[in-house]
Amino acid sequence: MNQIQDPIIWVENLTAGYSGTIVVDNVSFEVNRGEVFAILGGSGSGKSTLLKLIIGLHKPLSGRILIDGQDMVSAEGQERLALLRKFGVMYQRGALFGSMTLLENVRLPLEEFTDLPPPAMDLIAMMKLSLVGLKEFGDLMPAELSGGMQKRAAIARAMALDPQILFLDELSAGLDPITSADLDQLVLSLAHNLNITFVIVTHELSSIYTIADRIIMLDKQSKGIIAEGHPQDLRDHSENTFVRRFFNRRGASDSVFGEFDGESQSRKKGA
């Protein structure tokens, strides 16, 4: 993916940090429309900070962030609200509202931002829950669910309004392999059929090999991007030994990689 086709997220010379410490230093990259993009890195490499910057929870010290051509950093009021509507976020621990049932959690954005008739909202919320395999659990409270189920419900809530971009913080962490694989397929299906752009923040490789079109890898020491490209290319051809080691660790065996890579390639041709 060398040519830039149609960036939906454009990050330019971004520098950010907390109380005098720089965490992300002069980072630039772009995410193309409809692609599954992953931000990788070890613990403390600044990937969560980068996510918070893009979704507007933190202000950078310098640099620009454009989402669909509009500046995320300087947007205020209605403009900012309109920008926020363009993406959904699944937080690492779900962040479901504890006083509402799952169905009410997913229904909330529909209630607030659409004029659908109430039975329509119920049905659509239920369909979103069904997509993540939680149709039977709509009337349970988040506290009654396991961590993995909460995470899946959080994805359903993030998808409630079918945003153009979905940010997933640690998609597969804490999930069993089958659920994780199902979610991978869901991501692929939504990206392919609805042209939704996915930005996945993770340090786990298993899903990345299956679904990511392109990744960037952040490094704690340089506070910047040390690798950018397709996971397979980086694994085989990166000049950086840390990157090669990261990709060649156990769990990323050739057979697994090969099996999923074919699918990923064919999807790209189709898209």
């Binding site: 049905l123 919320a125 239920m126």
Partner: peptide, 15 residues
């Protein structure tokens, strides 16, 4: 096609 109508027989209103 991901959704099967027979699985959604009742309107899932919040009871």
């Amino acid at each position: 096609d991901l959704f099967d109508p027979s699985e959604f027989e009742e309107t899932p209103a919040i009871k």
